[in-house]
């Protein structure tokens, strides 16, 4: 099981780095969906010995929502808005890749400072979780399109989910389901908001929203 966990964590890190360097929105959505599946798999692998139905159910619900519902909602938004790619991000893609490596180093350094007791084969989970959160925050800060920022939000949530899974362990099912519900609601609301931004301005660049302030 440790091998599988490790492999999933590495793949998760790779999806993070891929998000830093992708400009196509469809690809970004797909990567975020893959990330959701990987998270579910990590949760399942981590609890494979102790067969707890609650965890399996929550992991499965998470996979369904993150791998099918979110991509569906976001792709529908893309179709409505008619955008294909993030054209001029605030930080270019080459620089983003460099930033990703720096952030990766920072998350490894940071996780080494955290006093957490972890099982064998899980030493990479905390850095991966922190890195995923960083990725989400970076997407929110450095990208111009509302949709990429929404993906950033989802990715950030993924990171927190992973962190909670390892660091806290026993999260009540109600809380986890509540978080998932919140995420779904947020993505739906953001989709609607993007639709309106698009109708009002003919684009979904959020930086121009600041001109609305009187």
């Amino acid at each position: 099981m440790e091998t599988y966990i490790e492999a999933s964590v590495i793949l998760l890190l790779l999806t993070d780095i891929a998000l830093f360097g992708t400009s196509r929105l469809y690809t970004c959505i797909t990567i975020a969906a893959v990330q959701g599946v990987l998270l579910g798999l990590i949760a399942l692998f981590a609890n494979a010995e102790t067969f707890i139905p609650r965890i399996i159910v929550i992991a499965s619900i998470g996979i369904v929502i993150k791998a099918f519902v979110f991509p569906y909602l976001l792709k529908r938004t893309i179709r409505q808005a008619g955008v294909q790619r993030e054209i001029q991000p605030f930080i270019g893609y080459l620089s983003s890749l460099v930033v990703s490596l720096v952030l990766f180093g920072v998350s490894i350094w940071f996780s080494a400072k955290l006093p957490l007791a972890l099982g064998a084969g899980r030493s990479m989970i905390i850095p991966a979780a922190i890195m995923t959160m960083f990725t989400g925050l970076f997407l929110i800060v450095a990208r111009r399109k509302a949709l990429t920022q929404c993906i950033g939000y989802i990715v950030c949530e993924n990171g927190m989910y992973l962190f909670g899974m390892v660091a806290v362990g026993e999260i009540p099912a109600l809380v986890e389901l509540g978080i998932l519900l919140d995420a779904v609601a947020a993505v739906t609301v953001m989709g609607v908001a993007m639709y309106h931004i698009n109708r009002e301005f003919d684009h979904i660049d959020t930086d121009r929203l600041s001109s609305l302030k009187g």
């Binding site: 780095i17 360097g21 890749l97 490596l101 990479m124």
Partner: peptide, 21 residues
């Protein structure tokens, strides 16, 4: 092309960071 090579470099540096942990 530079972007593709930078991505490869990112993978390699990741591997290096892993190997040094």
């Amino acid at each position: 092309v530079p972007q593709l090579l930078a991505a490869a470099g990112a993978l390699a540096i990741c591997a290096l960071i892993f190997s040094m942990r």
